[in-house]
């Protein structure tokens, strides 16, 4: 079973492309998804170490996705980072309760994202 380092799920193609580009350039193995359903199935099959989920996605939103993953994948679940537009406190609490690990607000700086990813994967 192939495993990847990072999964990126967002319905905005530009975001996905930008993130994929940065991570591939750094040498990570990545995959992408355009909606919640696809993200879930890829999480199951590819067991990424880190997963970036957009909060608002068709077919299943970020929060629902978190809940399902945390319930299903007990062994080595991915480190989930939610990409948000709002950055409000209420959303953060909800996400954390659902099983998310971290947040990143759009628009984001690719440098910051890289730093975070390196930090997370460097530890492991």
């Amino acid at each position: 079973m192939k495993t990847i380092d990072i999964l990126i799920a967002d319905d905005e193609p530009h975001i996905v492309r930008a993130l994929s580009f940065i991570f591939s350039k750094a040498g990570f193995v990545i995959d992408t998804a355009v909606n919640g359903e696809e993200a879930l199935s890829k999480c199951r099959s590819l067991t990424p170490k880190i997963a970036f989920f957009d909060l608002v996605m068709p077919k299943m939103d970020g929060i629902q996705l978190c809940q399902l993953i945390k319930a299903e994948i007990r062994q080595q679940p991915p480190y989930i980072i939610i990409l948000t537009c709002k950055g409000q406190d209420i959303d953060k609490e909800m996400c954390l309760k659902a099983g998310a690990n971290d947040f990143m607000a759009k628009p984001f700086s690719p440098k910051e994202v890289m730093e975070k990813v390196r930090f997370l994967l460097g530890e492991e």
Binding site: E12, I15, I22, P107, S109, P110
Partner: peptide, 21 residues
């Protein structure tokens, strides 16, 4: 605000990529 942020994130991400790499 939402509508503006979406294209804005694209612009920011890609311009920074172009500058970094």
């Amino acid at each position: 605000a939402h509508e503006l942020r979406t294209p804005l994130s694209g612009i920011m991400a890609y311009s920074e990529i172009l500058l970094t790499y």
